[in-house]
Design a protein around this nucleic acid. Sequence first.
DNA 1: GCTCCATGTCATTAA
DNA 2: AGTTAATGACATGGA
Length: 591
Amino acid sequence: MMEIELPKMNPSQQDMDLIDILWRQDIDLGAGREVFDFSYRQKEVQLQRQRELEEEKRQQRVREQEKALLAQLQLDEETGEFVPRPTPANNALTHANTAPAEITQNVAFTEEDGDAMSFDECMQLLAETFPLVESAESAAPCLDPSVPPSTDNSHVMMPGEMPMLTQTPLMPGPMNQTWMDLQHCLNIQEMLDMSGYVNPAPATSIQESNYSQYLPELGDIPTNTAEMCPPAYINTFEGAFNSVVPPSLNQISLKAEDINEGFESDDFSDIFYSDMEAKVNSATLPCDGANTVDQLEELSSDPLLKPMDLHSLSPGDFNVGKPEAMAEFPDSDSGLSLDASPKMSSPEKSLNGDGSFGFSDSDMDDTEDGPGSAESDYAEMFPLLFQSDSPQQSLTEKSPVSQSQESAIEQPKSEPAEASGFSTPPFTKDKQKRRLEARISRDEHRAKTLQIPFTVDMIINLPVDDFNELMSKHQLNEAQLALVRDIRRRGKNKVAAQNCRKRKMENIVGLEYELDSLKEEKERLMKEKSKNSKSLREMKQQLNSLYLEVFSMLKDEQGKPYSPNDYSLQQTSDGSVFLVPRIKKTLIKSN
DNA sequence: GCTCCATGTCATTAA
DNA sequence: AGTTAATGACATGGA
């Protein structure tokens, strides 16, 4: 469909560039350039010379590209912006979930045919100008702005690139500005690469959401967009991937080039430069939409990809497959709550018993058990591929097509394992599944499997009136109704149990605090009691002393003091004090 | 393999 | 009568 011209440099220059690239990639490992390049000085001179040449050519081609791109655009009467002319690619944009990405991708190729030549030169110049971002170059600027992002393939192809492109200031300006933008773009990509595996999932959402905003800017920045995302970049990706895929799989990978472009640049940026011939070969392959559709089918028909994984991950397919079975065999938990046998109280047990529920937890576990260990080994072999956990959570809301495509797209990443004799697609799919399941509650999975048309949150948290209204609006079968009721019951009970435990813990803490407080109070009261007792004793002593003192001051008629043994002082209620003879009291008592 | 802990779930009861 | 919250009891999985 399109032709890619070889870079305008002789083989020796290519080799030297390759050496240069390899050295730059390994420079952080301490490798000297001489290790890769024995004619480094000579190369420097040539590079300098060629850089000047390329700069001139590039500026001229940029002008041509601007014209060409403007010719491809038409003025949007509503927005006043230039937008790409209606093409199959644009149509695909409006049918993101259905149209194969390959069509749009290939359209992009055809649109930019005339620029492919200049791009190779640009790539070379880029490799020379920004030596430290070469690994990112192969991926970062590769997105042709005219390529609608509507399909999964496209987004997988550019895991982290779309957000980057949307963030990159796309203002028309001189070439320096353009290159600064590009460098900025590449730096972002480099950061993404350094952070590890860039997961396609987030890029997908961003891409799809931003692309409509991105397209209108085309009219404003024809030069830059053409400059930053020439089609040769995409072709470069193809070549890069083809170099990754082992010969036995090369044909498939070539056909599925759009998917294969989903690889992160990190994984093969070095191969990208080292395998220019492969790039050319892949670029010259036919890549029309129908062909790529077939390619996708080829991929999906791969026995290692096809089986139940796609099925279980795609409710739509599942529905077609066995709705009756699902209706006939509601969740065992539902069965329990619906007067099923108590033996089925445990989902796992019950499902192990009949074992026919595609949505059962045990079923899922069973599917994971087999490849799990090998998968973990694989994850150890290629940790970068498994670094991004959270982004994959978004896969839960993706369409089955996207999931299957992503799974298929992951296949090339596992090429090293394939080369070692393993069939990695199931592993990656299981990995994906496991991660999804680890984050999706069982009820969510069950609801998804039974195609409950509401979210679990809705089922659980809606007020009863709204919930009933919602249920009445949808025609649900018995299994779905039972599952919804159970989900609601379990969800509420789960929250209630959490609250109950929280409350219980709070009560325990409160009681402990209260116990401590009571102990402290008790201790305080004991101290106070002892203090009061001591004070009381002192007061008694003082009173006794005072009594004796007062008593000693009392004299009878002869001036003799009263004996405390014979008399005592007593005070009446009115405050009067009387001297009472004890003898009389004793006499009275004795009487 | 056992224990402990956290969490989910079920059954029951009361509001 | 149906719904919900609360809670005891049990199961399960991870540390």
